[in-house]
Design a protein around this nucleic acid. Structure first.
Length: 589
DNA sequence: ATAGGGTTAG
């Protein structure tokens, strides 16, 4: 049987079949030729860009005999992995028009493309095509849809579909479907539901495997629930399911974040004893844990150690170290690390830039930050939403409003689509510089598109208005919150209380505190400090003492500002001390 | 033969 190997070279329209180079015109006659028989082997790995894929598709549909549906599936898969989702759909439409046979594999691919475009609804609209063509649905079809629904954060819908499939016996969920549901739940913070599903599986016919255990353990670790995570670890061991490097990496990460270094050591030795070698992620987790505690030197030791063990640090390892130095304000050190990374031939990624830019912004070195910002595009990369947010915050911080506005305009025209964080930065910035009208006009625009606003946005507005002498307006907005279905949270109550205190309206502040408790929203440390500060500033010591007792009774304490105000009040009028027997020892210090 | 799943960094 004659077999020809066809590959596409770059986008230049030249095909090579075996060792021959032929042009399109030749190829056309080839495809008309009835002499060529047997299967044509298409090489999809050589496809470099969308054009390659589309060109190949057009060649494929002209081939006689037509390539098998398997080849079309492979082409779609290649395109999907290049993130060209919508072209997959247009090619699929062309296949349908040309009457090219389809199967369940290709339909699942089409659904996956829709899902990856965050259009699971269109994914569902593919289902009738299965029915019309007598193609059965299978677990892949539904798993793909469930994953797509989760990707749109529609947790309830995803779970409902899964339950319906089980309840109505439309399919028998396999390991992958369970893992997909569990991963979808765990990534969105539903750890208990994830755990419940694991328990449900244990009772059924499909036993959980290492994947499910890893998902559950990782979710528990991310919640800081290490005791539960370690219990699950022991359970799986007992069942004869061996933990793998992912299990250990999740656990070590959780323990590092809790600062439980002794337990980190124990688990680290345990994995080594099991002949499981710590990988670049393990070491990066340790590096990160140390950096977050300010122990960057120790982190650098870990990096040396890993190199000795033959594990090469990657860009993330270096990023973690850079961030460690930035957190300590050692920008020069961070910039060395950056240069070392480049020296080693490792490409800095957008995180590397964001870390350094953030470091410079925190030090108010905006020209350095901007310089790096411009470098990103020159190096062929693109600033992302975090980059813009960091720079915008930095610019507002140093009062360069004009440049900030310019940058925002630039972002709207060429950058990533602004998200809520960006708008919050702008609103905060405008209020900070008393640009109340600008802030409010932006806010009104955002309010028009309801999905673009949340309780934090209102917090910024209420805070901004009350700090700019518009307490009444702030209060009015606060009062309409419940009518638009937003429940005030502790932060927003505290903002209102702060506003009242700043105007010396202490009765209103007190009423608000009682009101929040009535609404089952308990004041926190900040709330109490704010109200105590209000009374201290007005030298209303008796009332202050009432709240002081209340807050200490609830386990809260004075912050530095409150303490300072108290010290001032005492130095002004030493008899204040007599009213504070509980604090005598503290005050003497 | 071709379609769906788990870990680290801002």
């Amino acid at each position: 049987m004659a077999m020809s190997k066809i590959s596409l070279r770059k986008c230049n329209g030249i095909l090579s079949i075996s060792s021959f180079h032929i042009s399109y015109s030749y190829f056309s006659s080839y495809s008309r030729s009835s002499k060529v028989k047997g299967r044509v082997v298409l090489n999809f790995e050589k496809l470099k860009c969308l054009d390659d894929a589309v060109t190949l598709f057009h060649q494929m549909v002209r081939m006689k005999p037509l390539p098998s549906v398997v080849d079309f599936s492979k082409l779609f898969k290649t395109m999907t992995s290049m993130k060209h989702y919508s072209p997959v759909l247009s090619l699929f439409r062309q296949m349908r028009k040309l009457g090219i046979p389809i199967d369940g594999f290709i339909l699942n691919s089409v659904i996956n493309s829709y899902c990856l475009m965050h259009r699971a609804d269109f994914g569902f609209s593919v289902l009738p095509i299965y029915l019309k063509n007598g193609i059965p649905f299978n677990n892949v079809t539904f798993t793909t849809l469930i994953r797509g629904i989760f990707a749109e954060n529609k947790v309830k819908d995803a779970v409902e579909l899964f339950k319906k499939l089980v309840r109505e016996k439309i399919c028998v969920p396999d390991e992958i479907m369970y893992a997909t549901v569990m991963s979808g739940l765990s990534k969105r913070g539903h750890t208990q539901k994830t755990l419940s599903l694991l328990r449900l599986m244990e009772q059924g016919n499909t036993q959980p495997d290492i994947y499910m255990y890893n998902i559950v353990i990782d979710a528990l670790c991310k919640d800081g629930n290490l005791d539960a995570a370690i219990n699950i670890l022991n359970e799986m061991k007992q069942k004869g399911i061996h933990p793998d490097i992912l299990t250990y990496n999740s656990l070590i990460d959780g323990l590092c974040k809790l600062g439980q270094w002794e337990k980190v050591k124990t688990l680290f030795s345990e994995m080594v004893n099991l002949n499981m070698y710590p990988d670049v992620r393990t070491f990066t987790i340790l590096t990160d844990g140390l950096c977050k505690e300010g122990k960057v030197e120790d982190a650098e030791e870990v990096m040396k150690h890993m190199v000795e063990k033959g594990v090469e640090p990657n860009v993330i390892t270096y990023n973690v170290i850079m961030d460690g130095y930035c957190l300590r304000g050692q920008l020069d050190r961070a910039r060395r690390i950056f240069d070392i990374l480049i020296d080693k031939g490792i490409e800095p990624d957008i995180f590397s830039y964001n870390i350094l830019i953030n470091g410079y912004c925190k030090k108010k070195k905006l020209s350095k930050a901007m310089q790096l910002f411009r470098e990103i595009s020159k190096k062929g990369s693109k600033p992302n939403i975090v980059t813009y947010n960091t720079i915008l915050q930095g610019l507002f911080e140093v009062g360069r409003i004009g440049v900030a506005k310019q940058l925002f305009v630039e972002m709207v025209s060429t950058g990533p689509v602004p998200n809520l964080s960006i708008y919050h930065t702008l609103l905060d910035g405008y209020f900070k510089y008393r640009l109340v009208e600008e802030a409010m006009s932006l806010f009104n625009k955002l309010e028009g598109k309801k999905e673009n606003i949340d309780i934090t946005s209102y917090n910024i507005i209420i805070n901004g208005l009350s700090k700019n002498g518009e307490l009444d307006k702030a209060h009015a907005i606060f009062q309409k919150l419940s009518s638009i279905g937003l429940l005030p949270d502790v932060r927003i109550y505290t903002t209102m209380i702060t506003g009242f205190c700043l105007q010396g309206l202490l009765d209103e502040a007190k009423d608000m505190l009682r009101k929040m408790e009535g609404n089952n929203c308990l004041p926190d440390n900040v709330t109490y400090n704010v109200i105590v500060q209000g009374y201290l500033r007005c030298r209303k010591i008796n009332e202050m003492v009432t709240f002081m007792k209340e807050m200490t009774g609830r386990g809260f304490s004075f912050d530095t500002t409150t303490t300072e105000l108290l010290v001032n009040a005492i130095s002004e009028n030493p008899s204040v001390v007599d009213m504070l027997p509980e604090l005598h020892a503290e005050i003497k210090k």
